[in-house]
Amino acid sequence: MFKKDITPGAKSKVKSSVQRTIRTKVLETYPLLDPYIEDILPKKSQLDLVKLPDRVSLYTLNTTPLFFQHMDDAILPHLGLVHKYPDAFHRLRIDRGAIRFVLAGASLMAPGLTSAGGRLPNDPEDTEGRYGGKELGAGEVVVVEAEGKETACMVGVLKVGTEEMKKVKKGQACEAGHYLGDGLWGLNLG
């Protein structure tokens, strides 16, 4: 999605009614953010909208990017926000071998998740329950962590459900998303 470097477009203030809608939408999509929403997006704050190429809207608060959205698709968290509240999102894990591909902007493929180093929900190896016990459907927003790493390296939307992924074990797992070091990560918001 942001494979190339991008220059931010026009920045505008978000109307307070729109800001309320965004807040509601965020909480609908990420209910686990509820305890922190007042810190992330205070009621009295002024959210800004920065236009990015290819009809992506980025919502920022005082130059901190929070969420982005392609047209009317799902609203996705910026990785900086994910790092602050890691367990407020559905998480998966890729094996070590897949990391360099993801960081180079390649699509996330199922084998990176279904291999021994990868993790999907209900993984017998996942004794802490970090990756949850609920299978996820296509279209769900997922945060992708990596084997041996503490922080997430990607945010994306599932192309196939996790149950099916475990059966088929091949093909693209995620739609192109936002990864560490991509144009969105490197964006200079002044």
Binding site: Y36, H83, K84, K149, T151
Partner: peptide
């Protein structure tokens, strides 16, 4: 867990140092 977590970012490449 205390939120928000503070993550250290590399002063050279801007990623978390583990990457």
């Amino acid at each position: 867990n205390v939120y928000p977590k503070t993550v250290l970012y590399c002063g050279v490449c801007t990623l978390p140092p583990e990457y």
